[in-house]
Computed example of a mutant assay.
Amino acid sequence: MSLNIDHIWKSYDTKRGVQSVLRGVDMEVKRNEFVSLIGHSGCGKSTLLNAMGGLNSIDGGSITLDGEPIDGPGPDRAMVFQNYSLLPRLSLAENVAVAVREARPDWGRARIDEGVERYLSAVGLWEQKDKKPSEVSGGMQQRCAVARAFAVEPAVLLADEPFGALDALTRARLQDQLIDLWKSESDTEIVVMVTHGIDEAILLSDRIVVMGAPPNPSIIEIIDVDLPRPRDRVSIIDDPRYREVQERMMYLLTTTPNEREKMPPKDTSVAPREPAPAHG
């Protein structure tokens, strides 16, 4: 399983003329990878994510999933949006169930009901299953949206700033639940997430795609995050590999292409750490 983006282009007509949002984007997301897209507003992160989901057409190039062209939405891909997108008249359980029925019409009721219970339980919402979205907090609504996406059993999960509207404590809890669901509760093989958070990207990702604004190439650099899982958010910040990735991202996001040409970055490779001395 792999998600391949091959030299794609996307432009929009604006009052100022044609604006190229995606410019020759090339990348591959492999099985069991979590990839984050990060960059300033207007660099094309969400446009790229929506193209992967089949929600946006592209002007050139191709996007394929396991060799099959993506030319529209499909049950092999599920999306989580920042604004929850729950149906207000339905309960949390019904919101999950209706999505599964639409995406998987060949599944029987027993399988659908089993998935609803499984994923609402996994995000701690089974006891709230009969409540409507207006009766629960924003964090609970987003947990329901995450459960709904996984209940469809997609091969690829696409998330557009899923934690951006949440407070810090709720965001941290949902980040952990997302990783737990992906790693232990689901058959989802690939996760691609748009984020504005440098620390969030490092904590969650295997690779980070740093994107830039027009007229320069859409992808500035793809950074490997060489940190073992599971990752503890408290201790990971003391790992020199974490600091190196953080510094590299800050450098790329706060300098212009001209500045980077004039001031080549230092070597960001990190030597393996020596084992801690034994005590006693």
Results as ranks from 00 to 15, higher is better:
175 Q>H: 06
164 G>S: 09
176 D>K: 12
194 V>E: 06
174 L>Y: 01
150 F>Y: 13
180 D>T: 13
186 S>T: 08
173 R>E: 11
155 A>L: 14
193 M>D: 02
154 P>C: 10
189 E>Q: 15
188 T>L: 00
168 A>V: 08
157 L>R: 01
171 R>K: 09
171 R>D: 06
182 W>V: 10
158 L>Y: 05
188 T>R: 01
165 A>M: 10
192 V>Q: 04
182 W>C: 13
149 A>Q: 08
188 T>I: 04
191 V>A: 12
163 F>W: 02
153 E>N: 14
177 Q>L: 15
183 K>P: 02
180 D>Q: 12
182 W>S: 12
179 I>M: 02
159 A>F: 04
191 V>T: 12
158 L>Q: 06
162 P>R: 06
166 L>K: 12
190 I>Y: 08
163 F>Q: 01
181 L>R: 10
156 V>P: 08
178 L>H: 00
152 V>D: 13
159 A>P: 11
171 R>F: 04
184 S>G: 02
165 A>E: 07
186 S>V: 07
191 V>S: 01
176 D>T: 13
151 A>T: 12
155 A>G: 15
173 R>I: 07
156 V>D: 01
189 E>M: 05
189 E>C: 02
184 S>P: 00
185 E>M: 11
189 E>R: 14
158 L>R: 10
176 D>N: 09
159 A>S: 10
181 L>E: 15
152 V>I: 15
172 A>T: 11
171 R>I: 00
181 L>K: 10
189 E>N: 14
180 D>F: 03
172 A>L: 10
188 T>P: 00
151 A>Y: 10
153 E>H: 04
169 L>H: 14
182 W>G: 11
153 E>C: 03
159 A>Q: 03
190 I>K: 04
186 S>L: 05
173 R>W: 03
192 V>E: 04
189 E>Y: 01
194 V>W: 11
194 V>K: 10
178 L>A: 03
177 Q>I: 10
193 M>R: 02
177 Q>T: 11
174 L>G: 03
175 Q>K: 05
155 A>Y: 05
162 P>H: 05
161 E>P: 02
167 D>V: 01
170 T>G: 04
150 F>Q: 12
186 S>D: 05
148 R>W: 09
195 T>Y: 13
159 A>W: 02
150 F>R: 11
179 I>W: 04
186 S>C: 07
177 Q>F: 07
172 A>N: 12
181 L>G: 09
159 A>K: 02
150 F>H: 13
193 M>N: 06
